[in-house]
Write a protein that binds this DNA or RNA. Structure first.
Lengths: 203, 203, 203, 203
DNA sequence: TATGAATGAGACTTCATTCAT
DNA sequence: GATGAATGAAGTCTCATTCAT
């Protein structure tokens, strides 16, 4: 658990948190490095001791945050039984997590999109890892005959993630009031699981 | 200092087209007004005869392009019969349109998201109009008993749009090769329509 | 009295009047040629049929307006008797004229100063002609023994004009309310005439 | 992209001096911020570390320079006896100071005028403080019976300042050659003091 | 390691002027 | 003569990044 000098890691972490807050408030381009520094309580120059440049901060937030999400998700999935239950865990976890971390939600919704664009070279490894969990569940469901075998896991995972993503976006942009996250989770689950279900087995 | 002019018409349209191309290539913030001007074949200053500022160009593209999409969609929907068929028309139209207009796809994916944010005052009227079409179809389906009556049209429309949106994004970012748009359309249709279908009626 | 085509002269005059109004409101640099055109009710391009450029408009206003002032002043001076009375006529005329033409006042106060500077080549011929009237009166007074012969007319005229100018400026900037022009005229007259008066003759 | 820095102090002062020089040479509007930077030996951006914008530089020069003038003037006035002598100190000080600081003279003459206009909101506190010194002297003279009691100090101070101002302007614009500052000071003093003097007391 | 003053390239936008109609 | 759409040079200001301390 010991992780070298606290001072160093403390600052890096503070910068990432500050950046998350600032990015989510202003968007990536409108955020000034000096504002991040102020928010983090460090000098402007200090940021460049921990990150290559402004873009790098963005990338690191993704890697780190999605890493945490994946870790939490995997823990929860370990306790889940069949593929349908796993889908529920995924859906519920995704929406709850963003509900509890509005800054993170805002960033993933809005800045991630940009980042994919302006950083052509950046391949969102961690993000794909997250999507892989979803396609693994679907594949498992298909193999077990729970889901129809004409379901294409690569496309289906995009459908599910897209649905969750749009729900989150609507929630973020609606100033977090209008949409009920629990209700939304149930609707997503009900539609996609029913949508993929193998009816033959039911009878 | 000024030089010759040509009195060509359709300049506004040429600027919008140029901007669409540049925005989709570089993203809004990385796009220079002078590049848009060059692409449109006009002088930098000319842009400001037709648009208030750079933001205004973005907004006008949305209004105009989504307006066109809505118009085309409504025509197609007029020939569709039951709600399920209408969902198919919506899904198919959305994905085909973006396939045929990659620049537009790229922009809608990335810039529309930001727009809500950086221009606090801008409310995407036309975009909501587009979503309304979707919820109207769902509502109709629920009323006719084709879709389950526990389906919430406001959430369901986000689910469907999100699915389409993510598919488009994946297609855009994968450099338009990896994903098969037809297959994707069928998957989206199959999952969401089956997912909303009222099974009681079937028996 | 007939002066060629009315149309042509009418437009030139309208432009000058419009420019006077706009310059006095915004100052020379903040005034846009297009605003002058709008105020004058002509097209932007039309201005360049009558004036070489924006600077030229300014110069022409000076020449024309100061010309008119000189003409009016000379008429009034023709009816004046001794140098002291002439000083009064000059002082009274200057302040009254500006009171009645606030736009002109504003312009002479502010733009005339600049003009000497930004147009190095422009020598304010008409303005010097106006000052000459003043030094002629002083010289006459000195010669007649009314004013002391240690009075230097070239300097004294600057003193008198400066006093009037500053009074006008204060009046212009105070939004024409605070200062009483009549009272000011009397104070200027009383101070400068008493200040130049030859006391030896009095006894 | 940034390059070496020197950590020299007094940058604010160097910018003010550079700006004074550039403004006086070109006038406010024709002066480019980059020229001021070059003159001051700093980078363009550095100017914005010390001043809000170009207008702010102008205002600061006024505040600072007139502050200095007031300070010097007050010292000299402390050693002056009667009101007439104080008028002489004021007149002499004003003209000598501008003679020794041609750039400052040019700015006060020309740019101050502009500033009063384009910065409607800016109230020239320091400048009014300077004028107050003058009206205080006049009021004192009136109370002591040295000056006539029909003299209005508020107007008289404008007359005196205006006279000095115009003399300075003529001197500045005449490329500092034609006018003799000493002679001018004596003329102004002689005219205004004689002009305000209470003759009744003389007898 | 940390700082933050300084840098300077670059972008948006304005507006005097032109000239095809 | 009159128009006004078009031009494009130019200027203010921003802000990511550096490096002497």
């Amino acid at each position: 658990m010991a992780r070298g000098r606290k001072r160093e890691y403390g600052k890096r972490e503070k910068i990432l948190q500050g950046a998350l807050k600032i990015f989510s408030k202003n968007g990536f381009y409108k955020s000034k490095v000096s504002d991040i520094a102020k928010e983090a309580g460090v000098a402007d120059g200090t940021i460049y001791l921990y990150f290559k440049n402004k873009d790098d901060i963005l990338i690191c937030i993704f890697e780190e945050k999605i890493g945490e999400i994946i870790s939490i998700l995997k823990d929860k999935l370990a306790g889940a039984g069949n593929p349908e239950e796993k889908i529920w865990v995924f859906v519920d976890n995704h929406l709850k997590l963003l509900e509890e971390n509005p800054d993170l939600a805002e960033m993933l919704q809005v800045e991630l999109r940009q980042s994919n664009k302006f950083m052509k070279e950046y391949i969102p490894v961690k993000f794909l890892e997250y999507l892989d969990i979803l396609s693994d569940i679907i594949t498992e469901g298909v193999q077990k005959g729970v889901f129809r075998n004409d379901i294409n896991p690569t496309i289906a995972r995009r459908i599910i993630f897209g649905a969750l993503d749009e729900i989150s976006l609507a929630w973020v942009l609606s100033k977090k009031g209008k949409y009920d996250i629990d209700e939304s989770a149930r609707q997503v689950y009900s539609i996609v699981v029913n949508g993929m279900k193998n009816r033959v087995l039911d009878s």
